[in-house]
Amino acid sequence: MADSNNHNSLSRFRIAPVFLFRWEESQQAHVLMYPEGIVKLNPTAGEILTRCNGTNTVGDIVLQLSVLFSEQPEFIEPRVHQFLEVCHGKGWIQPQS
């Protein structure tokens, strides 16, 4: 896997093709499904991954979330970066080239 620390606020991510990401009514949560499993996401994680659509930059995501959760972008930013790193490390998302 590529070095996961090299994204910045201009990077764009999308859900890796192996995964199916969607809202699951019966769980009242976003889920990420892959061949051998399912991950149920907490609301914040769900909101971030919803925005990993290949179009939004990481910077866009930070701004949108700060509006959504009424928090300062400075507070949101490191958390978003950290979460995206984890997702990238797990292969859930890919950089949009």
């Binding site: 019966s26 769980q27 889920v31 051998e36 499993g37 399912i38 991950v39 149920k40």
Partner: peptide, 14 residues
């Protein structure tokens, strides 16, 4: 056990 971090909450998942 399959890889899962959610509970079926009494319902089938697979």
């Amino acid at each position: 056990g399959s890889n899962l971090n959610l509970d079926g909450q009494g319902n089938p998942v697979w």
